[in-house]
Design a protein around this nucleic acid. Structure first.
Lengths: 230, 230
DNA sequence: CCTTGTCAGATTGTCGACAATCTGCTTGTC
DNA sequence: GACAAGCAGATTGTCGACAATCTGACAAGG
């Protein structure tokens, strides 16, 4: 059959590209929490007018990684230990739900995709590319959300992901050492392939606990850190 | 003491007002699902330029009640039975979590607020104001989210609320009869005041089931309904 | 010394006009 | 008559300029 699956072509608006650029800058920590985004300066740097830039910023405000105060400016969100803890506890609940929904829908394509993403994480780990390591680990984790066949759940996860990626990036940036080379995802993947759903859910919970443990103690340390301005 | 608590003053930007206007129009069903929003026409009607209107629309796109296709237009989201079912099942999980978190934080102020909102619903019911009835019922329901002391959870709920309100409004609009005068929230409120958390969670689940039951059958009926254009 | 009024500079919010893109119709060709 | 090319209208995307608002400094007054 000549039936090819074409994915939708890329958004060719400046707005979409600006959103991607800004998001990346925030999630990798290039833009620090609390920092103000000067519209004129950024628009000149990007060789773009302020209109699409402002529209892009509105999107990121709604996405939850920017915050806007009328006539004062738009800022990268501040990260508090409470924020991380909130995201963390919600994540646990959502994980359990996502696994429950994904469970009966697992098939060979799911397992293949699981392996593929796992491999991508391992590769990033080998390359000592911490930023990409965070990104790919979240993508591995996100598979259960993509597979759960619930659009609202997926959206919720994607919003959460933005923040988590930002938190982890900040954490990594703070302690300059490389992340553990040991593969902490091995068990997670194998449990998702297994037959005991409860076990998978339980592990996901503990798995998350592990990841967040350090993150939280780190965040509690920098509490009341002054926001850096431009 | 002359120490007054001042809440932040209202956003006085056109953008914010436009967002409120558009959201209301969508959530009350004035703008139908699938309908296209003509920027020029709306901006002229509101006596506003397209810039703030477009920024407002970006916000609502991210809020999930509008969808944008580059160079084609921005449309009110289409409502499918699956969407409602997805929102419904996630809502159940979130409710359980919200109740769990709110439970130890309940105090007199909580109970008072609960009664206040309950009273507001009853008043809207007496006045046969169905739109307000939906709105107030969701606000009553939202108290456990506001009280749970988890900002991420609250945000998630607020996004979900937008859709739910839209769904219920559509439903109401379809079947023109008035909503049941019987007070279905009575038990919910009393259980939240009680001592059996599990019972409250269980009831919330069933309570939601009741509300959604009709909504779902209605939505399944209008599946493949053609989207109405401008 | 502290408070209040004023002002200049910088930044955000809004506007009207232009450019890019899509849609549907018309036209020409076979 | 079927079909592709191309044109005109409408709509969205982007731009540069102007208006509204905030911030901080400075001066006047108590």
């Amino acid at each position: 059959m000549g039936k090819a699956d074409f994915s939708p072509i890329a958004d060719t608006t400046r707005r979409a590209e600006i959103v991607a650029l800004l998001r990346r800058a925030i999630l990798t920590g290039q833009l620090e929490p609390g920092q103000k985004l000067n519209e004129l300066r950024i628009s000149e740097q990007m060789r773009v007018s302020r209109a699409p830039l402002r529209e892009a910023m509105r999107e990121l405000v709604q996405e939850g990684i920017l915050t806007s105060i009328p006539y004062a400016g738009t800022f990268v969100i501040d990260v508090t230990a409470k924020d991380i803890d909130d995201a963390y506890s919600l994540n646990k609940v959502l994980d359990e739900f996502a696994i429950e929904r994904t469970w009966p829908l697992r098939n060979q394509r799911f397992f293949d995709e699981l392996d593929r993403r796992h491999e991508t994480v391992k590769q990033a780990t080998r390359n000592r590319d911490t930023t990409r390591q965070i990104e790919t680990a979240l993508q591995l984790h996100g598979l259960i959300y993509e597979w759960a066949d619930n659009s609202v759940l997926l959206e919720t996860w994607q919003r959460l992901t933005s923040r988590l990626q930002m938190y982890f990036a900040l954490h990594q940036q703070a302690r300059k050492e490389a992340v553990p080379a040991a593969d902490i995802h091995e068990i997670y993947v194998s449990l998702l392939k297994g037959t005991d759903m409860r076990a998978a859910q339980r592990h996901a919970r503990e798995h998350i606990d592990l990841d967040f443990e350090e993150l939280l103690s780190y965040a509690r340390g920098l509490e009341q850190r002054p926001s850096k301005g431009a």
